[in-house]
Structure formats: structure tokens, C-alpha cells
Design a protein around this nucleic acid. Sequence first.
DNA 1: CGGGTTTTGTTCTTCCGTAGAACATAAAGC
DNA 2: GCTTTATGTTCTACGGAAGAACAAAACCCG
Lengths: 390, 390
Amino acid sequence: METGARQSTLRSSNLALVLRTVCAADGPLSRADVAVRTGTTRATAARLVDELVAGGLLDEGERLALPRRGRPATPLLPGARIGALGLQVDAGLLAARVLDLRGRVVAERVEEDDLVGSDPARTLGRLGVLTTGLLAGVPAGLRLAGAGLALPGLVDGDLLLRAPNLGWSDLAAVDLLSGHLPDDLRPVLGNEADLAARTVAETAPGRPGPLRDFLYVSGQIGIGGAAVLGGRVVTGSAGWAGEVGHVCVDPEGPACRCGSTGCLEQYAGRHALLAAAGLPLDTPPAEVVARAGDADVRSALDAAARALGVALAGVVNVLDLPAVVLGGHLAALAEPLRPRLEELLGRRVLSARWRRPVVAAVTGPPAAGATGAALRALADVLADPVRRLP
Amino acid sequence: METGARQSTLRSSNLALVLRTVCAADGPLSRADVAVRTGTTRATAARLVDELVAGGLLDEGERLALPRRGRPATPLLPGARIGALGLQVDAGLLAARVLDLRGRVVAERVEEDDLVGSDPARTLGRLGVLTTGLLAGVPAGLRLAGAGLALPGLVDGDLLLRAPNLGWSDLAAVDLLSGHLPDDLRPVLGNEADLAARTVAETAPGRPGPLRDFLYVSGQIGIGGAAVLGGRVVTGSAGWAGEVGHVCVDPEGPACRCGSTGCLEQYAGRHALLAAAGLPLDTPPAEVVARAGDADVRSALDAAARALGVALAGVVNVLDLPAVVLGGHLAALAEPLRPRLEELLGRRVLSARWRRPVVAAVTGPPAAGATGAALRALADVLADPVRRLP
DNA sequence: CGGGTTTTGTTCTTCCGTAGAACATAAAGC
DNA sequence: GCTTTATGTTCTACGGAAGAACAAAACCCG
């Protein structure tokens, strides 16, 4: 039930606004800047800032005297002593990463390994050990506001329903992991693609990326994805949205392990693409690009681009998205895929005549899911800063 | 730029909350009911209600003495003297409808006619005349808060970019129409499917329907649609979302007038379906259902269901929708289509194992777009009631 | 039939958070 | 050293919700 707003609602909503404003800014802001950007008076802005500084959500920087008239401003920055833990298990890696409110990586550990068909309890135990080591090295002043775990599959509350790339299913993932973590740091599960998409929509906590509406396509062994509308990841009513890998490209196409036929991932998934190209299944994307001249590789890339074009055009038609962002192995393959893909989107998207969809590729460190999981936890802090104040 | 909340923000936000609460309720509420449902005190709720009653946004009903202890309550209802005008031009009809805040049809006129290839200025002129007649019959006490026009095509601000079913394109639709309307009643354009979807999501102004997340599929000559997430119609960043009719079912399929191949509407659009069934293009849906035993009709329905299954499963996979709602001619065909369609969704939707998507059909008066256009205008009133208060 | 009970609606005071104005502070410009 | 300019702080006023007390209008019951 929606509840009425009272005086204290004003305060918490304005505290959140001030915090978001500082986080979204390109550089440090002064109290006066905050007042202007939030449309409040300097008195009010200063009082709110003071509260946030006292709670550690904002930091006051050194007063650096710019060659400018007037009293020098006190620069404000997101609190460096508030962080969150992001974890990820993928077919090829384990990752743990701590981000602070400024979006900086405070600490990280990434371990590459083939985890397909691995034992869930052992693998999550390894991740726990990895994390314990990571947390031991984190500065003592840093308070962790939350944790998240990115998994490549369907997630429901604390359960992993099914992660085909790992061969895992029906798993109490949080229970298996939280034994290895501090008691007050129970991780929230999330879909890897949803969380990776968040890193594109939000370059740092509360700082919007250049794209507000796009379809993120995560190339893994299979293909995941997430639609982002107005900067918000569409998770769906049960959290199972984004299965763009199982959009049908051709009903007469090859059978997919999902039980259906002609799914996108049967053409553009990593395994499918490499098999079609006649390359070993562990070929790194860079080598695929290097061999793009070979006839087999070329035709496999072509088939992948065609399948992506058909499937993504459908999604773009339904959601009116100005951009498609390629992630995972598809990011590395973006250059050879782009011409064909953009041409197909131009042809198959009804509104392309007025605005042609753009194809972009993720550039960033690996294990984006871990970063996204930390960003999600930090977004909770931004949404309700009052909970973190005395 | 987002602005800080002040005291007056509290008031307007709470006024909107009270108004929404009364609109969303099943029956009349008392001031005390409002207080309970909004979590405010009776004093506050009463003050807010009084303001809304003074502004005509709420009405006080007759105190009907129920056989109940305690002082009898004053029943509150959405204001019957505030309404909005909804208009629609479609391939087969012109419609004008006035709805009040209670969601009742105050007046309406629907004229059926074949408008395919008609002259835009003449047709909109006819709609203007129709509307003038309609407004003349509206009770004098009714204030119109806004107007909307539903068109079967891509809309951009006051322009209609392209309406293939009508054969119209690049049209200043609002300018052509507003000459026939009162000066203060400039209609807002909207896509027909988006607005029809709203009538499913919102059965009356501010009253949510039973479904909060679904894909609306509007069968016309072609096929339009709209995704609804959390009760909100996804219009897309430019308002061009919902083109589910051009999701690809089979890249080797028949050419579509959009320039692409194998689009859904080439299988399940009204003209395509009737052509495949060997029936005249003006056959009413009821007759198609009656002849569902004929081999040709049966196979056409089968092909349509198969195409719908493939295309809608893709959308459901990406957006995690628990339901699909069929509208337009597809609503009438829902019974013969459903078994096949539900079976395909069960097979092709990845999460169907945990929650099988439901197929529902619209039941309601024709020209849902006109109703939706009026609902949209009334939603503006609900969102910011302060503007309508003295 | 009249007082107790119960629920609704109103009145009045208190409290909280923002607005606005005045004031203090710390620099550059001349 | 005085003026200018921008930042940050202090103080009062005001608006709106909370909370408590009170008034109103019905039913219940002896």
C-alpha cells in the first residue's frame, strides 16, 4: 500500500536527491553547486550536505584555491569509505570486486578457470575463499553496504533455478556461499546479463552512462541479455527477463538445448559460432577476428550477424531502442559483425527510416557482472541514504 | 534537472495520492477509509479530501445509512464533472468518446466506414464534425480536462509519420483536426495499440486492471501491439515501441510491405490471414470462427497461431511477461488460436517451466483506442491534481 | 426512551523541514 | 587597503502533517 508523504519524507527524499546529484556530477561540487542543481536554497543544501558528510556518504575534499574570485568552495565527493562487494561465477571465471561510492575498484580478484559442469558447492566455496582473501586486504575504514552475486542463469530470490552454461540447477546459491562470508553480508543474487547491462547504464553509482535506452546482448557460451529502458534494467515481473538468446531466428533452424528450435544462441553463441567456423571451442575471440578472412570463419560470422540482425530487430521493433550494445565475446567480435548487423537492423527495424539503431560494444574490464552486482548494492544506498545515517 | 521537494510538494503529492486512492477503490470510500489506506491521520486525509471536493475532483455522495454502528460516513467518488475526450481513426471506423473521472462513458459516437486510402484532411474533418456533435450533447457541467487521438501508426509529437493501414504518412494530424475543436482542446496523438493496451492495464482512471505485466497484441489489417510493464505502457524513447507485427517469424518468409521478410503480420494480420484462408478480405472474424472446420481456414488459423507463438515467445523471453492479451480481430479469434498458441509459448518460453504464459482476449466495446486516449488525458489529471485546483 | 458505544469528521496545538533574508568568510581585482 | 564576488552559516517565518481532544451521528441495550 502506498503511503502518504510526511515531513520526514521530504528530508529523506531531498537527502537522496543531494547524494544523487553529487554522484552524477562529472567533478566535485560545492554546496552552492548542489543548491543550484537541486533548486533548493544554499541554506537547505548545506544542511543536507552536512548530514550526508556526517554519515560518511559524502566526503569533503581539500579546499583547492582555484584562480577564481570569491570564497573558495569546499569540494564534495561521494563517500570513499562506503563500498559494496560484487561477486561473479561464470563459465570461465570467478570474480570478486569491491567498489566504493565513487565507482572506484578498491580491490579485486579474478580467477580464470573452466567451471562448466563444476560442482556448485565446491565452486562457490572457492569463491568464498577468494572473497575472504579479498576482504582481508580491504582498508579497515571501508564499510560494506551490501553484496551481490552475478550468475549466468535464471534466479529466484536466494535460489538459482537453472544456469545451463554451468550445468547447474535448483541450487540454494546464497546459502552455499554465505557460510564463507561475514554474517552481515548476505549476497543478493542477480542475473549476469542484467548486472552487466547495469554497468553500461551506470558508469559509477548514480552516474548515468551515455546510453539510457538500449538492448544489452551478452555473448557467453549461450547468449543472455537485458533491455534497459530509461536507464533502468528491465528484470521482468519474476526477474527472468532478458533471454534474448532464445528469441527464434528461424523456426526450421537447429534444435536448442532449451527444447525449442532456431534460437539466436544456436547461431551467435560462442560454442555455436566456433563450431560453425570449424575452430576449437576454446578459441579466444581475438583469434576469431584474426581469421575473419578464412572462408569458414567468415561464413560463421556472417550467419551470426544475420541471426543477430533478425532477433535484435524484433526486440528493437517492440521496445523502440536506439542502440544495441554487444558484450561478452560478442564485444570482441563487434567489428566484423557490425556492418552486416547494422545493415540488417536498418532494413528490419520499422522506425529505422527516422532513427537508425546504433551498434556499440562494451569496453571495460572483464567480469562486468561483478561490477554490476556491486553497483546494484550501492544503488540501494543511493535510493535510501537515511538508513545509513545516525 | 530534478528539483528538490518543498512543503508544497508534500501537499501536491498527497493530494495526488488521495485522488488515486479513491479512484483505485472498488466502491466509494469515506474520509476515514482514505486515512487508513494512505497511512495519514484522519485530520490530514479530511483536509486533502476537502480540497479535492472543492475543486470538483472528488464528489461527495449521498450519506446512505448502512445498518452499521457509528456515525455514517460520507461516500467519496471520483468527480463526475471532470471528463476527457478520446478520439480514434482506424481502417474501419471513426470514434469519439467522452469519459469521466469515474471511467463512465458520458457520450460516444462511432461511425463505421472503410477508411483505407481515404483523404486525411476529409476524414479528420469528418471526425471533427462527429466530435462537435458529440460535445453539443455533453452535459454543461462537465469540464473536459484534455483530449487524445488514437491513430494506427507511428506518431511523433503532433505529426503522424506513417499509418500503413490507412495509407497515410507525414501528416500534421493535430493541426488538421484542431480547427474543428474548441481552442482549448488540442488533442494529444497516440498510437492506437499503446492506447488500447492502456484500457487493459487501467479499467478506469487510476484503477489498475487485473494484469500488470503483459503484451498486448492488436490485430488489425496489420498487427500492432504494446508491452505493459508494471501497469505502464512501454512507449519507447521516441514513442515508436510496440511494433510486434514486424517481429520476424521466418527470415525466408513472404515479403512484408515494411521492406523486410517473414514479419508476423504476414501470417496473423487480418488481410494475410483471410487471404491464406481463401476468404474475402472483409469477412468478419465471427464468420472465420464459424468456418474454422474448413481445411483452408483451419490451416490459415494454424499458421497464424504458429507465427504468433514464435514471435510472442521471443518477446516474452526478453521481457518476462506472464500474459499475452489479444485485441482487435485476434480477440475474436482467440478461441481457435489459443490451444496452439499456448502450447507454443509453453515450449518456446524459457521460464514456462516455472510459470506458463497465459493467453487472454480483450472483451470490451469497440474503439478501445478512443477510450485509451481519454484515459491518458485523465491520467494527467490524476498525476497532478493541484493544477486543477484554485 | 435515554444513556453508553462506536465510528466518523473537525478543531487545535505541536513539530519538522524548507524558504528567504541577513550575515560572516575568504578569496581576487584594482 | 578597499571593493567585489562567491561560498557558507545563522535566524526567522511559514506551510503542512501528526497527534490529541472534541463534536456529531448513528446503533445497542436495558
